[in-house]
């Protein structure tokens, strides 16, 4: 029965992904400005025949519904067309850039969870203590902080003033570890390349913190409140009454239950995380798909925009799906 519900939930994402594809396609076509003009640059030197030839090459001369059909039928086969400005397959460009974005997102996720969960727990256990008040104040700053400003301030402080952390890129040139997954941190661990590992982590630190700060703040707050809730429950009282140490009560009984709302928040925040990565990737010259997306939008690179937005939407839908499915297992009462 549960399997069936999960399956149904999975199937329900298909129309969403399909709808996203159609919306993106249509919206890009309403955009003023001819992509061929953009491609040819400002000085021209091109004849009308060449422009027409390019139009034919990219299928821009066909009616819109034919273009849409072509786009969708190819997309299903994983072919997202060729980039107008970069002259390469969109899928190849995305594949190339995706590891950088994934690495940054994971970095931000790890940062926020590692920081926020203990803070949330401690704040709840020691409610109204100095630690609680200080960290909740910090969390409040965290949700009010514009990411682009936090990024710039941390560059000013840690790169320019103190000179201890790099301010751009993923690795110094030439230190790339042998490619296994494309995630530099993971690859350097797998290949035992210590100098790459250190360098990759140093490069990852500021962007991850910038991207993860709002999420950390939110998770800490949610963690704290759900922990407070759980600590008032009967079974925790009971565990305490049985004479278990406070540590055991918290870790074994309270924490697991308090984590459930956190899981939801993490899922929802994944979308927000993705939304923020364009800004963070721009500030830190991080070669991920966020910057690819922004460039593509500005350049009217239709196929590339379509491809990148599809990736974003797909990730978002999958994150929500994962949360929902996880939920049915954690808490079987939930109806999908």
């Amino acid at each position: 029965m549960r399997g069936l519900r999960v399956l149904e939930r999975i199937l329900s994402t298909i129309p969403i992904v399909f709808g996203v594809a159609v919306i993106v396609f249509c919206v890009m076509r309403f955009t003023p400005g001819d992509p061929i003009d953009v491609m040819m640059g400002r000085e021209g030197h091109v004849s009308q025949e060449q422009i027409d030839a390019l139009r034919r090459e990219f299928g821009l001369d066909k009616p819109i519904h034919v273009q849409l059909y072509m786009f969708l039928s190819r997309a299903v086969r994983g072919d997202l067309g060729n980039s107008l400005t970069k002259h390469r397959p969109v899928s190849a460009l995305i594949r190339e850039r995706l590891p950088a974005t994934v690495e940054l997102a994971l970095g931000a996720l790890v940062f926020s969870l590692v920081l926020a969960i203990p803070i949330g727990v401690i704040s709840a256990v020691r409610q109204y203590s100095f630690v609680d008040r200080a960290s909740m104040a910090a969390a409040f700053f965290g949700i009010s902080m514009p990411a682009f400003w936090l990024g710039i301030i941390s560059i000013i402080v840690f790169s320019v003033r103190l000179g201890i952390l790099p301010s751009y890129g993923r690795l110094p040139y030439g230190l790339e570890p042998a490619r296994v997954t494309g995630l530099y941190v993971l690859d350097s661990v797998l290949t035992g390349n210590v100098s790459s590992l250190v360098a990759a982590l140093r490069h990852l630190l500021l962007p991850s913190v910038t991207l993860g700060a709002p999420m950390a703040a939110i998770v800490a707050r949610v963690m704290r409140s759900s922990m407070l809730e759980v600590l008032r429950q009967d079974y925790v009282m009971l565990a305490r009454a049985k004479g278990l140490t406070e540590w055991a009560v918290i870790t074994r009984h309270a924490l697991v239950n308090a984590l459930i709302p956190t899981v939801t928040v993490v899922g929802v925040q994944t979308g927000v995380l993705l939304g923020g990565n364009m800004i963070v990737e721009t500030i830190f010259s991080w070669p991920g798909i966020g910057r690819l997306a922004v460039d593509a939008i500005f350049n009217r690179d239709y196929p590339l925009v379509q491809g990148v937005v599809m990736v974003y939407a797909l990730t978002f839908v999958l994150a929500n799906l994962a949360v929902d499915i996880l939920y049915t297992y954690i808490n079987p009462k939930i109806n999908l």
Binding site: I16, G19, V272, Y312
Partner: peptide, 24 residues
């Protein structure tokens, strides 16, 4: 509701950037 769900699948900032690119 379906339409809302569809819109939810776009990251907010990306969506806004796209709209601004169209409108100027």
């Amino acid at each position: 509701s379906r339409f809302a769900e569809l819109l939810m699948a776009f990251p907010f900032l990306l969506f806004a950037i796209g709209v601004m690119a169209i409108l100027g």
